[in-house]
Design a protein around this nucleic acid. Structure first.
Lengths: 394, 394
DNA sequence: GCTACTTACTAATACGTATTAACAGCCTCA
DNA sequence: TGAGGCTGTTAATACGTATTAGTAAGTAGC
């Protein structure tokens, strides 16, 4: 019944022969936009019919080579996406990208870094990404040279997260770590905290720098001078032991800690352990807030005060940005910043020694000054809904 | 220092001009395997030098076009992959497919079903999947006509899960539900159970049929006649209430239940509720075992006795199978069956009124009959850890 | 009955690569 | 010295598509 199985894929030429027209006509019918309109209806039908019968589907490679659109969007992550201890970190991004990609009528091409640390985008002198019309990039350990090369090559890319490049401008959609951190500091200041320890990541990446900026801004806004000794790099979150906390609360008069979460679950594990052994209690002994989302692939044992990135929405926005970059042949780079949402949690409270014990605490005569409460008009929504009003921007 | 940014990518022709040779020579030097050996050393050096100076990187599209392969593998799921209540169900498959795809030097193309229920692979007479070299398919609510059409078209596909088609042979990698269920029955029989209730899914899919086959085989092996009234379809897992269990243990003398898990978390929720209200206690009042993995995206409240599919490994195997299908132009279909692993858990025990068999009460995991233990040599990792030893290869 | 214009199509080409066949120059051997 | 072989390079071609410049037939205008 069925004809002997074809070995070769049907091409436009095959269709052309069957429909008795030329290959060009087939191309015009199948993918001709404006010019395709001037094809007579019977011809068009004949072509479509032949295409259906042959099970035609366009060859991406040829399309791409010719300069046409492949209708593929890439997603490249600089780290392997799938290690289990980071799955919940990357998953929302994947989700958002996938959703928006499909909504826009594109298919998603998944490039995964092997994590070798070597050049992987340009492997063997080949730009793997090129099959896609454009690409969303993601990840912490960025290889800047490759990134710069992509930009230089004028290949449309959007980064999720703020990444600055020397001499090249990169499109990105980033979370507003500066404001979020600043707001967090303001909140702590409102609660009477004056000595706030900031534990930052060791690597000097943009997100870390932004948080530090926010920290300084927040202090400045609250009229608190910056004590540089309270800005510390924390190599391993596991070091955040009870002894560690006690050292700072005791010797240095620290009453609150801001800590940058790691992408694995080490930080929350360490915090859980620290508060579990009973020596330090949050927020009774010390307030603590996380400057971002813990990975939370393990059920949260408690509701840490923190702020949260609208990851799904960021990913969606990135795709929209990317699409925008495609249309006018390589539009200008765009940078979008989206606000984080503050998750109140239960790990911060008033600074100890507010009313009593004047001798112990560092700042004896501090003024709670509720009139100074910063930005009372834009109190972040209590729940984690990531500013739904900005969804349709574009 | 760096030359003004190029707009166009350097091609082999550019290199050829600069090195004073032909494009063919460049190709031979840069990517010629066997034939590349016959290039004189000075020429080779000149070419390499020119290539380096121009920052050459090959064009994937052109390469693919020439080679006839796109080096893309597709992954299509008949349900939307990303609804959160099924994420943990699909995630391991995605993980395995992605891993193996990348290891094989392919990139992964993600097709997502919108879940419209309509024909989605062949949209507008065009086969979306065809832009990949081959495709791994997945999902419960299969649209058989489309599947059959793919096979008829001779497009290389591999299904994860056993799917039988009328008049067409499909490659798949499936879990051995028959043996796993049979083994579970054997284990219960060993514990003295004689009346085992089997709660199957309503839809008559292959996995369900296989479990039923295993159930019958297990009973037969244990010399227990099949009581057809003990095979029941369970429409909604939420119906598995304490009353329900009591009815069967009371009236029908049932001492153990085998139940097919749903893909959402309804079953485990129902079980948790049933055992929480204290009227029924597993395994004291009744043994119960799950014929597969609960989705477990919510932390497991208890360790149900069950068997578990090696999902990551199945996915990897599927990709390997698919690659095999590509090489000799469309090899013959292959079916692979992989064993499930038994998770002892704590929800089965000796039948009531039974002088507990050799092993004490609830230690079924030790498999007293090691000769019957399924696949003792390749015991899959007990839980979600995806065989960490295989990570670093390549 | 000539041009001018529209309609519906096609020939030709370019995209960047890998490969095959061909070729020129040189050496070897009879 | 001429046939044959080896070496190093290149011309030519194919892969499948999108697009530009045409062309042939028909219609309209005068």
């Amino acid at each position: 019944m069925t004809p002997p199985p074809r070995q070769r894929r049907a091409t436009q030429l095959d269709i052309a022969r069957r429909a008795g027209v030329s290959q060009a006509t087939v191309s015009l019918v199948l993918s001709g936009g404006a010019a395709g309109a001037q094809i007579a209806e019977p011809t068009r039908q004949a072509v479509l019919e032949a295409a259906a019968e042959l099970g035609y589907s366009a060859n991406v490679a040829a399309k791409s080579l010719r300069g046409g659109r492949t209708h593929l969007l890439g997603l490249y992550t600089f780290e392997p996406v799938f290690p289990t201890d980071q799955r919940d970190f990357y998953y929302p991004f994947l989700l958002g990208v996938e959703e928006e990609t499909s909504r826009q009528g594109y298919d998603l091409l998944l490039f995964t870094s092997i994590g070798s640390g070597a050049r992987e985008i340009y492997t063997g002198g080949v730009n793997r990404l090129k099959l896609a019309d454009g690409c969303v990039l993601l990840g912490r350990n960025v290889r800047r040279e490759e990134l710069a090369e992509l930009v230089r090559e004028d290949f449309p890319i959007v980064f999720i997260g703020r990444r600055e490049l020397d001499g090249a401008e990169l499109s990105y959609v980033a979370a507003d770590y500066v404001t979020a951190t600043s707001d967090m500091v303001a909140e702590l200041a409102r609660l009477g905290h004056r000595r706030i320890l900031y534990l930052r990541a060791v690597e000097d990446t943009e997100p870390t720098r932004d948080r530090e900026t926010g920290y300084r801004q927040g202090l400045a806004a609250a009229g608190i001078p910056v004590d540089e000794s309270l800005i510390r790099a924390l190599a391993d979150p596991a070091d955040l032991t009870a002894e560690y906390v006690e050292h700072w609360t005791g010797t240095a008069g620290v009453t609150a800690i801001l800590v940058e979460p790691s992408e694995d679950n080490r930080l929350t594990t360490a915090l859980a352990a620290t508060s579990a052994d009973g020596r330090v209690s949050f927020p009774a002994d010390c307030s603590i807030a996380l400057l971002g989302d813990p990975p939370s692939w393990t059920p949260e044992l408690r509701d840490w005060t923190r702020f949260s990135l609208p990851r799904v929405e960021m990913a969606r926005t990135a795709v929209q940005l990317l699409i925008g970059l495609l249309d006018p042949p390589h539009g200008t780079p765009q940078q979008v910043t989206v606000p984080c949402s503050l998750v109140p949690g239960d790990s911060i409270g008033p600074a100890p020694g507010q009313a009593a014990a004047p001798g112990q605490a560092a700042a004896p005569g501090q003024a709670p000054s509720p009139d100074q409460a910063p930005s009372p008009d834009r109190t972040p929504s209590p729940d984690r809904t990531p500013s739904p009003d900005r969804t349709g921007s574009r």
